[in-house]
Simulated scan of single mutants.
Amino acid sequence: MAPVELFDELRALESTETKDQWYIVAATAMAAAGAGPDVTELYQMATKGKSLDEEKHIQRRLKEAILKTSILYGVPRSLQALLPLFSILKEEQIDHYGPRTEAMKNGETQEERRNRGRQHFDTLWTPVAAQANRNKNFKYQPDLYLLNLETIYELWLSENTILNAVETQMCTTAALICSGSPQQAMWHTKGIVRHGGSLDTARFAQDIALRIGKEYGCKVDAVAKVDEIDFDDATPH
């Protein structure tokens, strides 16, 4: 299927509840699937007929989604998506904004980032399971704790200026599905709901990721569908 036909199909899944979200979920799934260069065509479709301000809004969200999820599938794959996109932007089209850079410039403290990251992780796992996970990471490899529980959650995933917590979980779910990580994808699907999203929102993110995964040859058969997941189970795995 030609990319434009696939994107039409994905955009048709959007509802009032998931408005302005189809392209961020699709972009992260494509980057994770190794289909980064096609993100440029996705961006062109999403911005067609939009004003410059609307285009920059879409660009900002799409870039943040790819950058934020690059920690899950790798910087090289994120660059395969971002650099072709950068190459088609004229000077006046560039959205030059970075929420972390701005926060640091404006005096955001490490303690503020730590608290935000802890809250995000506690909500994703539930507090008891989250602490058990922290303890395990720290016990077996302190630097894994430094990477996973501090750097990734405090500085990247919990940053919510552009993408809120539900949208972040939608994108991480999609990225994990298309990068062959079904167990982690299940946890972040739970995270969509635990952060305040509905089951329909979780299905929407899954449907886009599974469709892209199948189109680009990812192994997605082991992914637990929303209706198969026990959202009340907080047992650490």
Rank of each mutant, 00 (worst) to 15 (best):
G107T: 00
S179E: 06
E9N: 09
P37L: 06
M45D: 06
S78V: 00
M45E: 09
L89H: 04
N135S: 04
V223G: 03
I58C: 14
K19H: 12
T173E: 13
A175M: 14
T126Y: 00
L146W: 09
A129T: 03
Q169W: 07
A12T: 02
A165E: 09
G74E: 04
Q44F: 01
T109S: 03
I162A: 14
W22H: 06
K63V: 14
V193W: 05
L163K: 08
T173Q: 15
T235L: 08
D53Y: 10
S78A: 05
G197I: 11
G98V: 01
L42A: 05
L82F: 00
V4T: 08
E54A: 07
L6W: 00
A224D: 06
K136C: 03
G36K: 00
D122Q: 14
I229D: 07
A81H: 03
T201K: 15
A174C: 10
E14W: 04
Y153L: 05
T18F: 02
R134D: 01
A129Q: 01
I192V: 15
I177A: 13
V4H: 05
N135K: 07
G74W: 04
A2D: 11
R203I: 03
G191D: 01
R77Y: 06
C218L: 15
G107D: 00
I208L: 13
R60Y: 04
W187L: 15
